[in-house]
Design a protein around this nucleic acid. Structure first.
Length: 203
DNA sequence: GAAACGATTATCT
DNA sequence: GATAATCGTTTCA
């Protein structure tokens, strides 16, 4: 059961350009029942990786389709988990038509429900540090590559409409931590939230 | 505070 | 063999 949260309609919402989905995902709720405890976060920061023309994408044109990026070619509304620096798992939502590699990275959420469980999973952290980064939130929600290609309309990990972020509160910047495609402003966040990862790393 | 840096491993050249 | 869509600790001001 999905409890009191109603799943998004996957096809219509996610089968659109990554930039559009990244902006509109702000304010949605990410619900995880993994590990037997319900944890809910409001999505406050995202990044778009819109296709093969994006040199920063794991599916950039020179790379093509490989074992690692294959989930990005899957149907819209499914999960793509990738490992970063050998240690951190990050969650992406696959968007656009099946067969076309595009995704939205979920960079930060604001804890709404299951705070005690998240604190137990990330001991010694302040509440702000629970979910204010792409690999922090996967730890707090106890999610990872066992959910590779999982449909994000189904338990135990799904996205629901949540509360809409007004246009005036949406900030748009360049993406964080990449070395290619650094001029594109494909990062979106809710400027009212205290859970946004501020790390804009200079190059 | 801000900035530097090491961890740790799959993936691609 | 180099690199990477990060995090957490240490170091310095």
């Amino acid at each position: 059961m999905n409890g009191r949260y109603r799943p998004l309609v996957a096809a219509s919402f996610f089968d659109r350009p990554a930039e559009t989905v990244a902006r509109e995902l702000l304010g949605s709720f990410l619900v995880s029942d993994c590990g037997g405890k319900r944890c809910v976060g409001r999505i406050v920061e995202t990044e778009a990786y819109p296709g093969p023309h994006d040199p920063a994408s794991h599916a950039a044109a020179p790379i093509g389709r490989t074992a690692r990026n294959d989930p990005m070619f899957g149907p819209p509304g499914t999960a793509y988990f990738h490992l970063n620096f050998g240690v951190h798992w990050c969650l992406n939502v696959v968007v656009g038509p099946e067969g076309y590699p595009a995704a939205v990275l979920i960079r930060a959420v604001e804890p709404l429900e299951g705070l005690e469980t998240m604190r137990r999973r990330r001991p010694g952290r302040t509440d702000r540090e629970l979910t204010s980064g792409p690999a922090k939130l996967t730890q707090a929600l106890a999610i990872g590559p066992s959910l590779q290609r999982h449909r994000l309309s189904d338990a135990p990990l799904f996205i629901t409409p949540g509360t809409k972020v007004p246009k005036s509160s949406v900030a748009r910047t360049t993406r964080v931590g990449i070395t290619k495609g650094t001029t594109k402003r494909w990062r979106f966040y809710d400027r009212r939230s205290g859970w946004v990862s501020r790390s804009e790393r200079p190059r």
